[in-house]
Amino acid sequence: MSMKYFDKSDLTNIKSTPFGYTLSIIGGKWKMIIMFWLVEYGVLRYGELKRCIGSITDKILNNQLKELERDGIIIRKEYPQIPPKVEYSLSKRGLSLIPILEEICKWGENNRLDL
């Protein structure tokens, strides 16, 4: 990792670095998992996404989706019908993160410690 992005006078302020910014967008337990399933299926409705993820509460899923949408990573498309239909997909910006997720997967394949 290159240190050229760090203000070496204040290494305690990671949030001001490109690395810290990226972590603020994709960090946490669920965001990369949501992105993974959207890459796998392209477009998912809320219930489908929740079933794919498994043990996530509605509150957490809603919060994570709102944050990803706010950050321009996913697109939320709402259809005006009853009952409401909402679909989620990755935006162009979100798709640009896929090579990073693929590298994380490769690292996992190469470094997995089978117990």
Results as ranks from 00 to 15, higher is better:
Ile34Glu: 04
Lys8Cys: 04
Leu44Ser: 07
Gly28Ile: 04
Trp30Ser: 03
Leu38Arg: 08
Gly72Leu: 08
Val39Gly: 01
Ser91Leu: 13
Arg76Met: 09
Lys92Leu: 13
Tyr88Thr: 03
Met1Tyr: 08
Leu97Glu: 03
Leu97Gly: 08
Ser2Val: 01
Gly108Ile: 05
Pro18Gln: 04
Ile33Lys: 14
Asp10Met: 06
Gly27Ala: 05
Arg70Tyr: 14
Lys15Pro: 00
Thr12Val: 06
Val39Trp: 08
Thr12Met: 11
Lys29Leu: 12
Lys106Glu: 11
Glu78Gly: 01
Leu38Gly: 01
Gly108Arg: 01
Glu67Ala: 08
Gly94Met: 02
Val86Ile: 15
Lys15Met: 05
Arg51Asp: 15
Leu44Gln: 07
Leu113Met: 05
Gly108Lys: 10
Gly47Thr: 14
Tyr88Ile: 05
Asp7Asn: 15
Lys31Arg: 15
Pro84Asn: 02
Glu102Asn: 09
Asn13Trp: 10
Lys50Arg: 15
Met35Ala: 03
Gln81Cys: 13
Leu61Lys: 07
Leu95Cys: 11
Leu65Ile: 10
Lys106Arg: 13
Arg45Asp: 12
Lys92Gly: 01
Thr22Ile: 14
Arg93Gly: 01
Thr12Glu: 07
Lys59Gly: 01
Asp71Ser: 02
Asn62Asp: 14
Gly42Met: 12
Gly28Asp: 11
Gly27Gln: 09
Tyr5Gln: 12
Arg112Gly: 00
Lys31Ala: 10
Asn63His: 07
Met3Val: 13
Ile53Ser: 08
Ser91Glu: 00
Ile75Glu: 13
Ile75Ala: 06
Ile74Ala: 03
Val43Asp: 11
Gly47Ile: 13
Thr22Tyr: 08
Glu109Arg: 10
Pro99Tyr: 14
Gly72Glu: 02
Lys29Phe: 05
Trp30Phe: 15
Glu48Val: 06
Phe6Ile: 15
Lys66Pro: 00
Pro18Tyr: 07
Glu87Leu: 09
Trp37Ser: 03
Lys8Gly: 11
Lys29Ile: 12
Leu97Thr: 07
Tyr79Lys: 14
Ser91Phe: 12
Leu97Asp: 01
Gly20Cys: 02
Gly28Arg: 10
Arg70Ser: 10
Asp114Cys: 00
Lys29Val: 12
Gly20Asp: 04
Lys77Thr: 15
Lys8Phe: 14
Ile75Thr: 13
Met3Gln: 06
Met32His: 01
Thr22Cys: 09
Gly54Ala: 03
Gly42Pro: 08
Arg45Trp: 03
Ile73Trp: 11
Pro80His: 12
Asp71Phe: 11
Asn13Gly: 01
Ser9Ala: 11
Leu101Ser: 04
Thr12Gln: 10
Arg112Ala: 00
Lys77Asn: 14
Asp114Asn: 06
Trp30Val: 11
Gln64Thr: 10
Thr17Asn: 05
Tyr46Leu: 10
Ile14Val: 14
Glu69Phe: 12
Tyr46Ser: 03
Met3His: 09
Lys59Ile: 05
Gly54His: 07
Asn63Val: 01
Pro18Glu: 00
Ile26Asp: 02
Pro80Phe: 09
Phe19Cys: 02
Arg76Pro: 00
Gly28Trp: 10
Tyr5Ile: 06
Gly47Gln: 14
Tyr41Thr: 02
Val86Asp: 03
Asp10Trp: 09
Lys59Leu: 09
Asn111Ile: 04
Asp10Ile: 12
Arg51Pro: 00
Arg112Gln: 01
Asp10Thr: 11
Thr17Gln: 05
Ile33Asn: 08
Met3Trp: 13
